[in-house]
Design a protein around this nucleic acid. Sequence first.
DNA 1: TCTTTATGTCATGAA
DNA 2: GATTCATGACATAAA
Length: 771
Amino acid sequence: MLSLKKYLTEGLLQFTILLSLIGVRVDVDTYLTSQLPPLREIILGPSSAYTQTQFHNLRNTLDGYGIHPKSIDLDNYFTARRLLSQVRALDRFQVPTTEVNAWLVHRDPEGSVSGTQPSSGLALESSSGLQDVTGPDNGVRESETEQGFSEDLEDLGAVAPPVSGDLTKEDIDLIDILWRQDIDLGAGREVFDYSHRQKEQDVDKELRDGGEQADTWAGEGAEALARDLLVDGETGESFPAQVPGGEDQTALSLEECLRLLEATCPFGENAEFPANVASITEAVPSESEPPALQNSLLSPLLTGTESPFDLEQQWQDLMSIMEMQAMEVNTSASEILYNAPPGDPLSTNYSLAPNTPINQNVSLHQASLGGCSQDFSLFSPEVENLPVANSSTLLPLVPSNSTSLNSTFSSTNLAGLFFPPQLNGTANDTAGPELPDPLGGLLDEAMLDEISLMDLAIEEGFNPVQASQLEEEFDSDSGLSLDSSHSPSSLSSSEGSSSSSSSSSSSSASSSASSSFSEEGAVGYSSDSETLDLEEAEGAVGYQPEYSKFCRMSYQDPSQLSCLPYLEHVGHNHTYNMAPSALDSADLPPPSTLKKGSKEKQADFLDKQMSRDEHRARAMKIPFTNDKIINLPVEEFNELLSKYQLSEAQLSLIRDIRRRGKNKMAAQNCRKRKLDTILNLERDVEDLQRDKARLLREKVEFLRSLRQMKQKVQSLYQEVFGRLRDENGRPYSPSQYALQYAGDGSVLLIPRTMADQQARRQERKPKDRRK
DNA sequence: TCTTTATGTCATGAA
DNA sequence: GATTCATGACATAAA
């Protein structure tokens, strides 16, 4: 529970920092360098995410084939690596983009760091300097690895294999893969470094413990993690056996630890590698110690937590990417992102389609945007497991989120991203080879204004739902899939309320009585004998479903709360009408209380859960439950009152309780309707906007085709007219004669004056008709 | 401490 | 006229 809370809060915090850094990525490097060390340390991990360009820079450096040569059996080494890469590639196949991106995010700083680039940002900014940097980068890296921890890193696979002059492309790709994995490994170490600096003293102790702690850690703290990772680890561990120095127990644990780091901390990267394996081993425990912390730091980024605040950043990034792509600007970033060489190890590495760079970038945002989907899939089983989940589950989780992301985020940002190009694309198409003359001549100003307004609307009023719908529209030209669940809001809209009734099973009462109330909550309430017992326990039976429906919109469905321990605390007092006895039998008290088990505590808790009216009723010794008071029909209610000898005060209280209870339900219904209305209006607006966009597109298409036809007619006209000859065999003068198309399809050659007159007549006819 | 959110309550009007 | 429902406005608790 606490870990979950931590996960959310700290994760969100980190995520926010990350996003903010993404937004200012251009200046981050200088900013960081100008910052005081502590702040820099804090930011460094997340900052790695912004340095996506650096990752590509690393790619480029690798492309230079400057991989450090080592005396290793390349064949065996590459074979093992190939298998490993294949396995990983398969994994990434299943997890199309998000996972890849997450790694990309982190790798960048790694490359810059590992490469000890003076200022990665500067190197990136200068397109020319990119390649220049690569050379030194590799050189530095080589020297570093050789001097410092080459041996240990070899065991970890962190050292690039030797490069023979005759390396095949495949080998190069493999090298790149290895290099990437090294980066991943390094990322973990860097993450550790960060934590290491934070907990220097503790780390010293751990340092002494070395591999032992790593083992214990693997066995205890992240046991599940390690187990899950073993699959990946087996592939990853096959190679160290062939690497000199490789396979003792410590090495294995290190591998596992590194893999864990890789899985858990894809992006936490710092510039410094641990000087030796021992430090790495230390690092692993340090990370393993607070698994919750890891989750809090990482999972929010992977799974995402919040979309609203990062939309702008993502939008900016996406726009920049699109600009780079569309405009083919040869900025350094664009080069890094897109100018992957033919044998780009990246694409081969991830076995991605040619459009991989785009996907990677997009997925980069997806990784940070996961929040969108997470919110929507908040109660999905995978996410439920998340808190408990070790880092190993994070990876499987990413794909699950990635799918949802594809439907949410990608639909949001990509829609907004591709929409302008879409329109522009049509315009550019006309301006392109197909139609030499610009579309501007074709489109009237109003048309252009409309289009530009659309662009602006989409850019400025960028709205995930909106954009997703737009994206749907672009995906399918129909653009009329109004019923498709394109947005979470739609899920929580009134249409979905009926299904939400089932989710109100948080309390046994609602689950049993939901049949009659599920549709409209209090409406249609009936005190069936079947539910009499339940009535005792039901409390606010009538309104519970309403509550669930209502809260469902705010993602606080009680049943889901039970599934999300970290949301337990969100629970409000919904036992307004519940009698104490009812509360006893009801399973409303959260599991935590039940676990405590002591009836006294339960009683206290129930006391606290009781509403004011319940307390009053108890104080006044009202002989029946508030639930009955509120929900019984008038006749039965009166009968009930007549059965007892009640004082005026009691009767007054009972009537007040009934009035308040009913009003409470009414208020809930009212609010629900309000929300539904708002959501429906929102959806209507979105639909209209989507229709407008579609109509605009169609208009552009029509205008373009019209212009094409006009051009064709004009060319035919000129061709025919040019072939006409008078009696003397001379061509007719275009200024004196003109061709006229007759209704029957024939073409007549008439004097220009006549043609003009007829044209005027024809122009008048429509006007007359209008009159 | 302030803001936001969710919920309860009261007053009022309509059916 | 009593009852119920709907809704705006306000209060309150929790985050």
